[in-house]
Design a protein around this nucleic acid. Sequence first.
DNA 1: CGGAATCCGCGCCGATACTG
DNA 2: CAGTATCGGCGCGGATTCCG
Lengths: 114, 114
Amino acid sequence: MKRCPPLGDPAALRALQDALYVVGGKWKLPIVQSICNGNHRFRDIERSIPGITTRMLSKELKELEMNGIISRTVHADIPVTVLYEPTDYSKVYGPIIMAMIEFGLVHQQKMKAR
Amino acid sequence: MKRCPPLGDPAALRALQDALYVVGGKWKLPIVQSICNGNHRFRDIERSIPGITTRMLSKELKELEMNGIISRTVHADIPVTVLYEPTDYSKVYGPIIMAMIEFGLVHQQKMKAR
DNA sequence: CGGAATCCGCGCCGATACTG
DNA sequence: CAGTATCGGCGCGGATTCCG
C-alpha cells in the first residue's frame, strides 16, 4: 500500500472539517483576498468581486467576523461608513492558503497533462 | 494594516478554489481517511463512515478517482471485488491536510476561549 | 452607504428500490 | 458485493426591493 495522508486521528479529521467550513464555500476566499488587497468598505469589496450579491457578501462577512478572521468597525459618520480589516489572527490562515495554492497549481498541471 | 495572506495573484486564487473543490464537500475527507486507514472495499468504506449512503459514496469515489486521488481496480472474481487505494499522487495532498488540521486545531482553541 | 427582508428556483443530497 | 435509478425535500444562494 502506498503512502497516504495522516488522517488516522478522529480529532484531526474534525479539525480538518472545521477548517474546511471556515475556509470553504464559494465566496470566503475571494472576500478575504479582496479585503487583504486593500478593499475595506462594503461597496468596494462588492464591486471587486464579480457576481457576488449584497446578500451573500453580508452573510459571509458576518461569518468571517464571527470566526475572527476579519474585524468590523463602524464609524458614525453621515452617511455611516464601515471598515472591514484582516485581523492578526488571519495570519494563521497563511500556511493553509499557501498549501492549497500549491496543491491547486500542481493539480492543474496534473489535470492538464491528460 | 495588518499582515495578510498572499492572495493577490488571480491564478493563485483559482488554484485555491480548485483545491477547495477537490478536497471540499461533506464526504471527501472521511472517504480518503477511510481508504488510507485500510478500508479498500466498497462495503468496508461504507460501513466505516456513519451516515453516508451508497449513492454519495459512489459519486464521491468517482470524483476522487477522476482527480487522481484514489485508484479503482476491478478483480473479476465471483462475486466481483473492487479495490480502492490511495495513489502516489495523493501524497501531494499531505501538506494541505496538515496545514488544515493545524489551522482547525488552533481555531478550535481560539473559539473555545470565548 | 451598508445592509435587511422577501421570494423563489435549482441542485445537493438522503431514502428507497432495483440490478449484474 | 458493488453499485445504478428514481423520487423528493430542503436549503443554498441569486434577484429584487426596501430601510436607516
